[in-house]
């Protein structure tokens, strides 16, 4: 689905200006979220903040273009699926630590502190936590804005 064509469509969502700005900004927001997630063990940030930034990118899409376009990009089924994938992978990493002795053991090589590939399982955990938190909050938001809509008298 092409967002550029959709932003010409005045019938749904907000005005052309809002749609164009949010179409241009959304990819940068996603990029910033990925940066926050991947560098979470070196700089401030991490999985929680980065996951919510990813959610905000999709919420921007949802607010500007309306629920149908956002759900075509990432439907509620796939949102709950990413949620499950993130949570299950986190638990699986915890159980893989059992190979070294106990639950959530940091079993990978720690590397040299301060580099991007270091700290063993912590970057992986950050990514899975971000998937989990981001997809869960996006699912809540779909629930609030699409399912939770009040049916007014005119629409009936």
């Amino acid at each position: 689905m092409d967002l550029k064509e959709l932003s010409r469509d005045e019938s749904r969502g907000m005005t052309l200006i809002v749609k164009t700005i949010s179409r241009l900004i959304m990819s940068f927001v996603i990029l910033f979220g990925c940066f926050i997630i991947i560098y979470g063990h070196i700089t401030p940030g991490g999985g929680f903040a980065g996951g919510i930034i990813l959610t905000i990118a999709y919420v921007l899409l949802l607010l500007a273009f309306g629920g149908k376009v956002a759900m075509a990009k990432l439907s509620n089924f796939w949102a709950s699926m990413w949620d499950n994938i993130g949570a299950l992978s986190f638990v699986v990493i915890g159980f893989l630590g059992m190979t070294g002795g106990y639950f959530f053991l940091n079993f990978l090589d720690h590397g040299s502190p301060g580099h991007l590939v270091s700290a063993g399982m912590i970057p992986l955990c950050n990514i899975f936590i971000a998937l989990k938190v981001g997809a869960a909050l996006y699912a809540i938001f779909i629930g609030l804005s699409v399912y939770g809509r009040i049916v007014t008298e005119e629409e009936k």
């Binding site: 991490g46 929680f48 919510i52 909050l137 939770g148």
Partner: peptide, 22 residues
């Protein structure tokens, strides 16, 4: 850090309850 994110989840739950009550 964990408590803030949980707060957002409970806020969404409360908001959906309020919408249903309305």
């Amino acid at each position: 850090l964990t408590s803030i994110v949980i707060g957002l989840g409970t806020l969404a739950l409360m908001a959906s309850l309020a919408i249903k009550l309305y």
